[in-house]
């Protein structure tokens, strides 16, 4: 059952905080719809970057449509941030198969963020004037809440592309390059204490 929970984003154009909603239990079909909604904006932005000789963001090839099959399984769930009638960000999580690696929580289950992304028009590396800020923060808060609901005490983890590492390093422990990861990405893990601090401070 779809549940909507209030959150907020920052509109860069007006310098104002705006009301938004977190949607849980995004279905396979809804995920494909969002992918189709985002794709024209993504391609347009990539064409502009190419014409200007600028580098493409590292996640330019992400295709949420191909990730949709994961949602056939109980282990995976997808969440969205919606504002002004459009999906502003997506996150897919897994609740099985990941154990904490930091001493204090070694062996205990952690919620793993499989994918997290803002809409193309919110990405600083893709467009000159991104529309909304705070999408990633809102989704991370959701991941922490789901982790707590699952009995994981707010513990979360993810592998990060190099471009996003400075952001995650502010809130999570950087355990360095993970040699077991297919793309050899850096592994980040958030402890229960860091999760509590993140929710209390609600960075923006």
């Amino acid at each position: 059952m779809m549940i909507r929970r209030p959150t907020r984003l920052f509109d860069r154009a007006t310098d104002k905080v705006v009301a938004a909603e977190i949607l849980n239990e995004i279905s396979r079909d809804e995920l494909i719809d969002v992918h189709l909604d985002w794709q024209p904006a993504r391609l347009e932005a990539l064409k502009s970057l190419r014409a200007e000789g600028k580098p493409w963001p590292e996640n330019w090839h992400w295709d949420w449509g191909t990730k949709a099959d994961n949602l056939n399984f109980l282990a995976y769930r997808c969440f969205a941030v919606e504002c002004e009638g459009r999906t502003q960000g997506l996150m897919m999580i897994s609740t099985i198969g990941w154990r904490g690696r930091i001493g204090i929580q070694a062996g205990k289950p952690v919620l793993y963020i499989e994918y997290i992304e803002s809409a193309p028009w919110n990405l600083a590396g893709l467009v000159e004037n991104p529309q909304f800020a705070g999408v990633g923060i809102a989704l991370m808060q959701t991941a922490i809440q789901v982790s707590a609901d699952e009995g994981f005490a707010g513990r979360i983890a993810l592998h990060s592309l190099p471009q996003s590492q400075p952001f995650y390093r502010r809130y999570m422990n950087d355990l360095g390059i993970d040699s077991t990861h297919a793309e050899q990405l850096c592994y980040f893990e958030m402890t229960e204490q860091q999760a509590n601090e993140f929710v209390e401070r609600r960075p923006s």
């Binding site: 056939n72 109980l74 099985i96 062996g107 009995g151």
Partner: peptide
């Protein structure tokens, strides 16, 4: 070991079983 409730462990087991079986 996992610092989880019985319900949470059973839920984890079901999710894992479903995924592996598929």
């Amino acid at each position: 070991q996992k610092d989880l409730s019985k319900t949470a462990v059973i839920r984890q087991a079901l999710r894992l079983y479903q995924l592996v079986d598929a």
